[in-house]
């Protein structure tokens, strides 16, 4: 039948389309590697190690026992900072979204804080928290908390009022309204906030490690610089970048899935 035939051809076409898309993405990655290789050839081994050498060095690092405590330190700081950012951000964001006046007062302040070079506050953090992991966590959390707050605030503020009226018509309890209506309705925006928050939290943690730190991936980069060890420096950078892009892509995938549903 004509109907089934077109359905098949559409499926085939979608598959071909997806293949082409992944091919294009792969081409972009190849392009990046080629540019890197050219830069390497122009600048030489002392400045930029080749993609291959960097990958090999990254493999060595990933296989060495001394690398993992540093990775764990960064990961631990990131996770703690992110948890703090989420708890505060969702809490404050919900309040600012639900309470109109507070939200209106706070919004420009949040926007101002968002685009501030927060690095200038780092000495203050160090003076308060000392040189350990706490300072990195605090600095990461400061970066992450603002986008989470802003996204949560907007999600709560823009909830379709009809949902709440429907909840009342259906005689849902406050608890049911929160878990069955508010949470699913705000989830997509909160995940967007988490995605942006993740990026900024990582940025905060890594900046913390580049400056006055003795552990973590950022510290490895700074130490390698001190030793003029270009391939290690680039390998650590590569590992960090790939991990960050991978996590962010997963969050982006979830984000897109959730937004398509709404």
């Amino acid at each position: 039948m004509a109907g089934t035939q077109t359905a098949y051809s559409r499926k085939d076409h979608e598959r071909a389309e997806r293949l082409r898309y992944f091919g294009d993405v792969a081409l972009v990655i190849v392009g990046i590697v080629v540019v890197w290789q050219i830069l390497h050839m122009l600048a030489g081994d002392v400045a930029i190690s080749s993609p291959l050498a960097t990958a090999i060095r990254a493999g060595e690092l990933l296989g060495s026992a001394s690398f993992w405590p540093h990775a764990a330190e960064t990961a631990k700081a990131l996770v703690y900072a992110l948890i703090i950012a989420l708890l505060i951000g969702i809490g404050v964001g919900t309040w600012l979204g639900a309470h109109k006046l507070s939200g209106a007062v706070a919004e420009p302040i949040l926007v101002a804080l968002y685009s501030l070079p927060k690095i200038t506050l780092y000495p203050l953090i160090l003076l308060v928290f000392g040189l350990g992991i706490e300072a990195k966590i605090a600095f990461g959390a400061i970066h992450g908390v603002i986008p989470v707050t802003i996204f949560t605030m907007n999600a709560v503020k823009n909830i379709n009022r009809v949902f709440l009226r429907s909840a009342r018509v259906m005689k849902l309890t406050a608890m049911q309204t929160a878990t069955r209506i508010l949470l699913p309705a705000t989830m997509p925006e909160i995940v967007s906030g988490l995605r942006v928050g993740f990026s900024l939290t990582l940025l905060g943690v890594v900046i913390g490690e580049l400056f006055s730190s003795h552990r973590g991936m950022g510290f490895l980069v700074m130490r390698a610089i001190g030793l003029h060890d270009v391939s290690t420096m680039m390998a650590v950078t590569l590992i960090l970048a790939v991990a960050a892009v991978a996590i962010s892509s997963i969050l982006l995938y979830i984000d897109n899935r959730l937004h398509r549903r709404v």
Partner: peptide, 28 residues
């Protein structure tokens, strides 16, 4: 077509903590 292929890179760009490149740039 190029835009679609670049989109995932643009959206995850800020996940890369850029300042780790800075020491490298100073070095070069």
């Amino acid at each position: 077509r190029l835009r679609r292929a670049l989109d995932p890179f643009l959206t995850t760009y800020y996940a890369v903590p850029f300042f780790v490149f800075y020491p490298l740039l100073v070095f070069i």
